[in-house]
Write a protein that binds this DNA or RNA. Structure first.
Length: 301
DNA sequence: TGACGACCTGCAGTTGTGCA
DNA sequence: TGCACAACTGCAGGTCGTCA
């Protein structure tokens, strides 16, 4: 049984006239007649009652026609769905990040020149991002920890300095820089455990010879900044985050020792096929962070 | 092992014609 | 006039052998 036979059957059933159906289908009448006969042979029953020169759909034909029409509706829906899906995937970039704070600037700048592109974004830990890349669930991962694995490419995007912020009335607020060990007894306001940034700052404190006293841990950098302004403690802040805070009632200190930096990078699977939109986003991301790096140099030297 | 061409087969379609 | 059959043509797809 073939689609062509079913298509011809629909037309003959609708017109109940072999010659008119053949004209509509733009084929010779004997060809149509033979096609319908083959279909009837396949099914093992006649679909039409033939009386003299007339053909009429019989009970088998009626029942079969209903099924055929439903099948064609399903097939047409399927075609449309696949078409939409194909077009949609062309315009969608899937992205997992461990540092969501970079997204507004990055995506905003990209969408300004590519308004038709849509993003699906996930906030994930580094191990989960690696799994997503390996399973083909995302196009790219942007992370402050290198993602390594078979067929995974990881490239650095930006190296940014990490500062310490203290309340403006804090004794250290008159200084430009400190050694991290100088604040070993200070109350710290920090990101919650599990965040890459928290793991990084804990490691930096260990390198300086102490374990920080965490008085408050949260998910929101803005809340952390607010608590520092209220005089409740000191906190680490990446250069880019500091730059984007509209009000800076707290004081920023450069950390001389140990070297406090973090590197943001982008990872993808070398096996993955990239849509045009994804390919453009990758190129754009490198250019965007080059500009950000220049801005950080201008601002912080 | 994959690419390519020659050959074969099956089927859709056409023309001509017979039958009701 | 309209349906169906026979003979034929053209084309697409499959198979097989050859070659790099």
């Amino acid at each position: 049984m073939e689609l062509l036979q079913l298509e011809y059957f629909q037309t003959v059933a609708r017109l109940q006239h072999m010659t008119k159906a053949a004209e509509e289908l733009q084929i010779a009448q004997p060809s149509l007649s033979k096609t319908i006969s083959r279909l009837e042979e396949d099914l093992g029953v006649p679909l039409f009652d033939r009386t003299g020169r007339q053909i009429r759909l019989n009970a088998y034909g009626e029942a079969f026609l209903a099924r055929v029409q439903r099948a064609f509706v399903e097939l047409n829906e399927g075609k449309r769905e696949i078409r939409d899906l194909a077009r949609l995937n062309e315009d969608i970039v899937t992205l997992a990040v461990s540092t969501p704070r970079i997204l507004p600037g990055l995506l905003g700048a990209f969408l300004a020149s590519h308004p038709d592109v849509r993003f699906r974004q996930f906030f994930e830990s580094a191990p989960e991002m690696k799994r997503q890349i390996e399973n083909g669930e995302v196009d790219f991962c942007i992370s402050s920890a290198a993602i390594e694995g078979i067929d995974i490419e990881w490239r650095p995007l930006l190296t940014e300095e990490i500062f310490l912020i203290v309340p403006s009335n804090h004794p250290l607020a008159v200084r430009e820089s400190i050694r991290l060990a100088e604040v070993k007894d200070e109350p710290f306001i920090s990101m919650n455990a599990g965040y890459e940034f928290r793991e990084l700052t804990d490691r930096l404190c260990r390198e300086a010879g102490f374990v920080p006293h965490i008085h408050f841990a949260g998910d929101e950098p803005d809340v952390i900044a607010g608590l520092v302004q209220q005089g409740l403690g000191v906190a680490f802040v990446p250069a880019l985050t500091w730059l984007e805070w509209p009000r800076r009632a707290s004081h920023r200190l450069r950390i001389e020792e140990p070297a406090c930096q973090r590197q943001l990078g982008i990872a993808w699977s070398e096996r993955r096929y990239f849509s045009t939109a994804a390919e453009r986003f990758r190129v754009f991301a490198f250019a965007y962070f080059r500009d950000v790096a220049k801005r950080l140099v201008r601002e912080f030297g």
